[in-house]
Amino acid sequence: MADYDNSRYTYTQVLAGTGYYMKDDMLRYSGGVSTMQGKLNTAGHNCGTPDGKFGNGTDTAVKSFQRSQSLTVDGKAGKATLTALDKAASGGSSDASAAAKNLKKKFGSIISSFASKYSIGEDVLGGFILTESSGSGFTSGKLLIRFENHIFLKNVPNASKTFKVEDKVHYYYKNGTWNKTHTGNQSSEYDAFNLAIGLNEYYAYYSISMGLPQIMGFNYEVTGFSSPKAMFQDFSISEDNQMKGFCTFIAKYSNGSLLKACQSRDFNRMGAIYNGDGATYGPKLKTNAADYAKA
């Protein structure tokens, strides 16, 4: 009987040369194995839906991949196997983006811990952050935000003299002119946000997305806060706080449906739940997850 606990090593550790993954007849979960399974599928060595358990199907897929790469065919996925797998799963490129490398350096341990606790691939969580914020939760010392006019207008109808949306373009009125938000400039987001605070503070915080994961203020309760403002204040302290809030959100949002989509690596479903546009957001998320895995 193969009694080998794969959960002792993260994917990053094995890729760096610490330990390896192999068949475990007790089928204990490992976030790193889940990441590896997703890559095996992408590389054309199907092992079924990634579940983090190294059983017969994964053993067969690993050996098949090792054989295709002229590696030692022993079913032990160590540094050499994962290095080749990263390259094969990414279409031949083994270079990760600077944002992915920086994200893993700063938050790899938090991501790994949460991934293991909730049976999610580490790359999935990293992919979310890269898709939303490129790995940074602050700009010029201020919390990264995005003010959503349509959310504010829905809840504060008398704000139409200050905010409007035309052909999906968001505008705010200041100094006698209409100005665009969502231009990539945080000053415009904060201009709109501060104007909203003057009209209705609660819904101003309610109508912004915040930090690394860009979670909307109206999700404050599921993220673990008493109000949108409390969430803003906590996220403004550190990126670590933003990551903790994000992990809480993933675990609890939509009665656990987002967590289940993450566990099954259904990227389009994740995109539909998290962003409302699975067909567009899902492929971006999948690409960024692959980028994080390479880092």
Rank of each mutant, 00 (worst) to 15 (best):
N275T: 07
S113R: 14
S140T: 11
F163N: 03
A279N: 15
T183E: 06
V62G: 07
K23N: 12
M26Q: 11
I110L: 15
D234T: 07
F152Y: 09
S264V: 02
T287K: 14
G44M: 08
N179T: 15
G256R: 03
D291T: 09
L27D: 02
A61H: 01
T10L: 03
C47S: 04
F218D: 04
T35R: 06
H150G: 06
G38A: 12
S226I: 05
I273V: 13
G211T: 09
T280M: 02
V222Q: 03
V73M: 09
S254C: 12
V222K: 08
Q242S: 09
A204T: 00
M22K: 07
K174W: 05
D277A: 13
V165I: 05
F225A: 07
K63Y: 10
S68V: 06
N200K: 00
L199P: 01
G176D: 12
G126F: 02
L103H: 09
F138K: 11
Y281T: 10
M26A: 09
P157L: 07
K87S: 13
A100F: 08
N200V: 00
R67W: 03
P50R: 00
S109T: 15
K161V: 01
Q186M: 14
F232S: 01
S188M: 14
K244H: 08
Y206R: 00
G217Q: 01
M216L: 13
K168F: 07
G217S: 05
T248C: 15
G48E: 01
Y171V: 07
Y203I: 00
Y29A: 11
G224L: 09
Y292W: 11
S109H: 10
I215H: 06
G198I: 00
E239W: 03
M270F: 05
D277Q: 06
A84S: 11
Y281H: 14
K106F: 02
S160P: 03
F246A: 10
Y9K: 11
E221T: 13
A159Q: 03
A80R: 04
L85I: 14
N219S: 12
L144K: 15
A96F: 04
F232K: 01
F193G: 00
T35H: 10
V169T: 10
I273T: 07
V124M: 14
R28F: 05
T280D: 10
I237Q: 15
E221S: 14
D74K: 04
E148I: 01
